[in-house]
Amino acid sequence: MSQPTGDLRVRRTRKLLREALIALIEERGFDRVTVGAITERAMVSRAAFYRNYRDKYQLVEQIFDEAMAEVRGHVADGDPDSRRARWVAFFDHVDEYHRLYAALLGARGSAWFAARMRSALAELTAPHFAPDAPVPGLLPSVLSAVFVESIVWWLDHDRPVPAAEIADRSADLAGAMITEATGWPPRPWSRRRPAGKK
């Protein structure tokens, strides 16, 4: 019977730490937030923080990794309904944690987190494209930027449409880009030599 109480205590501690992190990012910006400030705001001991997280980066990463795990759980190759469900699940997650994402991706946020999000989304989409595609790796990178910028726009405008709609609109934009890119003819790559070198 002690396990459920322990689980409840851990969930409560993590919730308090997440809420404190969000408030502090909004006030100070991510770079100026310290573990000490997070624990003080959350009224949680440093020992409790370090039982759950290595540092503030891991606290943020855990929230995002939970979202990515859920998104990957919606993947079924070749099934358009599954692909839609994946992006709706992701935007639902962003909606649930909108204050955190608005803080992290806003003007006082973290360039580290924005890059981490783009990288994770690029990794998610990369397996769907042939490795010999023209400009390998470009499309996943650009698509990830489209989704991140869609999130930023949505949060900056106080989520004016439901998560499912912004997911669909973003996926439509991504689909148009994929259609365009899959029509590109293969081109031989040539390396440009710096001026003055042979």
Rank of each mutant, 00 (worst) to 15 (best):
M1D: 13
M1Y: 14
S2L: 14
S2F: 08
P4W: 09
G6P: 08
V10P: 05
R11G: 05
R14M: 09
A23R: 12
A23D: 12
I25E: 03
E27V: 04
G29P: 07
F30T: 08
R32I: 06
V33S: 05
T34V: 03
G36N: 09
I38F: 05
E40K: 14
E40F: 13
R41L: 12
S45T: 13
A47V: 11
A47Q: 12
F49I: 10
F49G: 08
F49L: 09
N52F: 11
Y53E: 05
D55I: 02
Q62V: 14
Q62W: 07
F64G: 09
D65G: 08
E66F: 13
A67H: 11
M68V: 15
D77P: 12
G78A: 06
D79E: 10
S82Y: 06
S82P: 12
V88R: 03
A89I: 09
F91Q: 01
H93E: 05
H93M: 07
Y97W: 11
H98S: 04
Y101L: 01
L105N: 03
S110A: 03
A114G: 07
A114F: 01
A115Y: 03
M117N: 07
A120Y: 02
E123M: 10
P127Y: 02
P131Q: 10
D132K: 09
D132E: 13
A133H: 11
G137S: 09
G137V: 11
P140A: 02
A145V: 00
F147S: 02
V148H: 00
E149N: 07
V152K: 02
W153F: 12
W154E: 00
H157F: 08
H157T: 10
D158H: 06
E165N: 00
D168Y: 00
D168L: 03
S170R: 00
S170Y: 01
G175Y: 01
G175A: 10
T179Q: 11
T179P: 02
A181R: 06
A181K: 01
G183V: 04
W184Y: 11
P186Y: 09
R187L: 15
P188V: 14
R191T: 15
R193N: 13
A195N: 10
K198M: 11
